[in-house]
Design a protein around this nucleic acid. Structure first.
Length: 513
RNA sequence: GGUCCCAUCGUCUAGCCUGGCCCAGGACAGCGGAUUUUCAUUCCGCCAACAGGGGUUCGAAUCCCCUUGGGACCGCCA
């Protein structure tokens, strides 16, 4: 039988890293088995579900490279077992609900929320597990009618058989729940408003799902769903795999309490989808050897559920940063430059002065001639920008860092303390002499020979005669960048250009007068 | 509190099923060093763990039991 897995997000918030990993594992398993991956939007909670969250979830799945064979596609659906939004399936659920009701496997319950709450309190105070007493189960037809006539609101409860439910979890092995400990569960608020545990069972059946791969937080829902399958007469051949949870630094389930962990946020900060996928895959799964770097395709080849960890895993931002840096370092410089454009624009370092399909940008200060960047298509001239970005490629952990690292290229005046120009306690006099010397040497380089190699050659020759090379190079680098740490002076001087380089040296000299 | 799940370096983990090759390997982070000044990259090195106690066995990180610890769930949310 063809493997079919599904990812079933409820659009009550943006896609976060935890859900993304669940989706990834489910997707990987489907792809590995050459099966189908289905996306089903569980938007039965009308209060909390919103179209913009659905859009966020779906677009981020796509961004990560997790494509689906069936599921929402724009306003439409693709696939033959749709619709794939539960809000559009209420007619389907109603039939099954009525069936359970007529077979007395479910009943109307008129208990009020206040009554239930009081009951729960009471049970809890006696140290018992809160569960529904089953009071309305025995209501006669007559009593039911009266209640309805009186306009008392009702919900539909499923009669939970008090028996042991055993299932084999693909990750954890055999799991046993004693359902005698569970009360009858609410499966719908009314015939048109079914609830999670019920819709899942109906849809997984109708959509011919073979493997349910979800977070461990759902493990106690599994016996309820198994019982429901039995009551509805569905074959009980779905395989379950409950994934370990991703934890925050305090070792509790990753959630909003731990800050914004939405995929969108990481995307905005300049994490690459390949890096996020690679990172997430290794949280709870490993190939069994010492490889750490995997593409999505590589993962498809290697993935298997029995190498999935049982224990939960703490989200380690440092590791994400490391992997992201790894991918960033291996990117094509021009591609990187193109990705950097929005960050520079947002920081006001890049001006947009054209519009339409041909967008022109000019680098403030640096270059008088505007760059032509077409959002799509060829003919992108990012040479100069790639020069700047290239200097920081190996220093970046995420794209958003570029702005503060390389902003000095775009500034007219550099703001730094005179102190910064001093290398190992050099005094004003020494600094001045060093900078004068550098200025002299660089002035001697012809415009046409202004390149990194030439600059390095000229300066290193001098620096070596000084014993401590830092005495010549540090003040220069500080003068050009205004920073404690930066790329090297030769390459910075080259990218900056002769004129700008000399003027910054002069500015520095005037500081130490 | 009840139920279920889990337990190797600070973190992610290999090893556990099929005991010996493990006085426990890799990676991130940290620390130290090298790499034509700084930062970064790269390279080298260091620090660092089988939760505890009982068994079983010639032998246990590996199998069994208990304890302890952690987590998840206990909704007319999903």
């Amino acid at each position: 039988m063809k493997v079919r897995t599904r990812f079933a997000p409820s659009p009550t918030g943006p896609l976060h890293m935890g859900n993304a990993r669940t989706a990834l594992f489910s997707w990987l398993f489907a792809r590995k088995e050459r099966g189908d991956f289905i996306v089903r939007v569980e938007d039965t909670d009308k209060e909390r579900s919103r179209p913009e969250w659905e859009k966020d979830v779906l677009s981020n799945l796509e961004w990560l490279g997790l494509d689906w064979n069936e599921g929402p596609a724009g306003a439409e659906d693709k696939g033959s077992s749709g619709p794939y939004r539960q809000s559009q399936r209420t007619g389907i659920y109603k039939e099954y609900l009525e069936r359970l009701l007529s077979e007395k496997k479910a009943y109307w319950c008129f208990c009020t929320q206040d009554e239930l709450e009081a009951q729960r309190q009471d049970q809890a105070s006696r140290g018992e597990t809160p569960r529904y007493s089953g009071r309305c189960k025995t209501l006669s037809q007559e009593e039911q009618k009266q209640n309805k006539k009186a306009g008392n609101s009702a919900v539909i409860r499923f009669v939970v058989e008090p028996k042991k439910v055993v299932f084999k979890d693909l990750i954890r092995g055999e799991v046993v729940f004693d359902m005698a400990l569970s009360g009858d569960i609410v499966i719908a608020k009314d015939l048109k408003t079914p609830l999670y545990n019920f819709t899942v069972v109906v849809d997984d059946y109708l959509m011919r799902i073979t493997h349910v791969i979800r977070g461990e937080d759902h493990i106690s829902n599994t016996p309820k769903q198994l019982l429901l399958q039995g009551a509805l007469g569905f074959p009980q051949n779905i395989q379950y795999a409950h994934l370990p949870l991703i934890l925050g630094p305090d070792k509790t389930k990753l959630s909003k309490r731990h800050g914004d962990n939405s995929v969108t946020r990481f995307k905005k900060q300049g994490y690459l989808p390949e890096a996020i996928v690679n990172f997430l895959a290794l949280l709870g799964w490993n190939p069994g050897d010492e490889r750490e770097i995997f593409s999505l395709q590589g993962l498809v080849k290697e993935f298997s559920l029995d190498r999935v960890q049982k224990g939960n895993a703490v989200f380690n931002l440092r590791r994400l940063e490391w992997i992201n840096g790894y991918y960033l370092r291996r990117m094509d410089k021009k591609a990187l430059a193109r990705m950097a454009v929005p960050y520079l624009k947002e920081a006001g370092l890049l001006e947009q002065n054209g519009n339409g399909e041909e967008q022109k940008f000019s680098l403030k200060i640096q270059k008088s001639q505007p760059y032509t960047i077409q959002e799509t298509g060829e003919g992108i001239d990012l040479e100069f920008l790639a020069g700047i970005v290239g200097l920081y490629q190996e220093r970046l952990k995420k794209l958003s860092e570029l702005v503060e690292l390389a902003d000095f290229f775009f500034k007219k005046e550099l703001n730094y303390e005179e102190e910064l120009l001093s290398w190992k306690g050099m005094g004003e006099q020494e600094i001045r002499e060093s900078l004068q010397k550098v200025k002299e040497l660089l002035s001697g380089i012809l415009e046409g020979e202004w390149n990194k190699e030439r600059i390095e050659q000229v300066l290193m020759k001098e620096a070596e005669t000084m014993g401590d090379k830092g005495k010549l190079l540090w003040p220069l680098r500080a003068a050009l960048t205004g920073k404690e740490a930066s790329a090297g002076p030769f390459e910075v001087a080259f990218v900056l250009g002769k004129e700008k380089t000399l003027s910054r040296i002069e500015q520095a000299i005037s500081k130490v007068q």
